[in-house]
């Protein structure tokens, strides 16, 4: 990959496709183990996630937070940073958004909603700036610090949702946000909401930022070759901190969308590993905003179809979690897929 290149090469598109096929094939073994027909199980899975308006809406709804976390991981990765703290960043972002969402009454929606969203982004950005700073100033590897900060975020939000902001009766959840802070539903009965529009806007903004602005160029230059970038007068530490802040802000939007658009309140540990799945989405999407979109839709479809498959066949829904893990492994093992593709070409 070259520094200037903003579109994906054919091999960069082919590797993920081969990886998905491989993962589905290995997944088929698990389906056979439980004594079901893989073709039938996959038919149920995909026909209930990709066919019909309700299914597509549900798939897009599940894809929305994954677009944000996928973009977050991809963005940091473009600067050579591995942000595995998206999970924590989305929790603090969600908490900040919900606090604004329940506290400020009497505001018009045009002010209240953006305020809640921005509060979430700010919280996520600040949270992510800590590992960014530690990396830039002290050279501490961001991976460990982002992992540690995930747990700190879990416990911090656990405390806030059961303590000062507890609003449920028996359940660990906050009060409901005011209607003026809600992301409106687009296609009821699905929970698809205007968060998808923010997600698509984020894809476009990230693309333009990374490939059409000076700041974006600097971030990519640091990720591409930090030594060369520094010779060229680009500050490594400034760009690393900035990349983490933007990455954290993007990740937080996943939490913001879940709270303001889906649950309407902060529920303790609401995220089904959305942050970690963002790593898979970014990898599968080759760290490209457009790739992230398609990868997120695929993962959204898997999650949506899993519920139907669980209901209509004997295959537990956790099959799709296994498939997602396999996708990560296969996509990351580029050498493996490359060899497989070469073998086929030779044969």
């Amino acid at each position: 990959m070259k520094l200037e290149q903003s579109s994906l090469t054919s091999r960069e598109i082919l590797t993920p496709i081969v990886s998905v096929i491989l993962a589905l094939l290995v997944g088929a073994i698990f389906i056979l183990i439980v004594g079901e027909n893989p073709i039938e199980a996959y038919r149920v899975l995909f026909s209930n996630s990709l066919v019909g308006m309700d299914s597509i809406a549900a798939t897009l709804q599940r894809a929305t937070p994954l677009i944000f976390t996928g973009l977050a991981v991809a963005f940091a990765f473009r600067c050579g940073l591995f942000n595995i703290g998206a999970e924590g960043q989305l929790y603090v972002g969600a908490m900040a958004a919900v606090i604004v969402g329940i506290t400020f009454s009497g505001l018009p929606k045009v002010i209240h909603l953006p305020m809640a969203v921005l509060a979430g982004m700010a919280a996520g950005g600040i949270w992510a700036s800590v590992p960014g700073l530690l990396k830039a100033k002290l050279g501490v590897h961001e991976v460990i610090n982002t992992i540690m900060m995930n747990f700190i975020a879990y416990f911090l939000t656990d405390y806030l949702v059961t303590g000062p902001f507890h609003g449920g009766r028996w359940t660990p959840e906050t009060a409901r946000i005011l209607p003026t802070a809600e992301l409106s539903r687009l296609l009821p009965p699905s929970r698809l909401n205007t968060g998808i529009i923010i997600a698509i806007a984020a894809i476009i903004i990230v693309y333009i930022f990374l490939w059409r602005t000076r700041l974006g160029y600097e971030i990519r230059a640091v990720g591409f070759n930090p030594t060369a970038a520094e010779y060229g007068g680009i500050s490594i530490s400034r760009n690393m901190i900035m990349a983490m802040v933007f990455s954290g802000a993007l990740a937080s939007l996943a939490g913001v969308e879940q709270i303001l658009g889906v649950h309407g309140r902060f529920i303790q540990r609401f995220s089904p590993d959305l942050g970690f799945m963002g790593i898979a989405v970014a990898l599968l999407g080759k760290n490209h905003p457009v790739g992230v979109f398609f990868a997120a839709v695929l993962f959204g479809a898997l999650r949506t179809g899993a519920a139907a498959m669980d209901r209509l066949t004997d295959v537990p829904r956790e099959l799709v979690v296994i498939i997602q893990a396999l996708i990560i492994m296969f996509v990351a093992a580029e050498e493996l897929t490359r060899r497989l593709m070469q073998r086929r070409r030779r044969a």
């Binding site: 698990f30 595995i84 590993d273 970690f276 799945m277 790593i279 898979a280 537990p316 956790e318 099959l319 799709v320 979690v321 296994i322 997602q324 893990a325 396999l326 990560i328 492994m329 990351a332």
Partner: peptide
Amino acid sequence: SGTAINIFAGGVTVF
């Protein structure tokens, strides 16, 4: 790879 193993383990044990 470690992340994939964590996700896999969470899925396969419940499965």
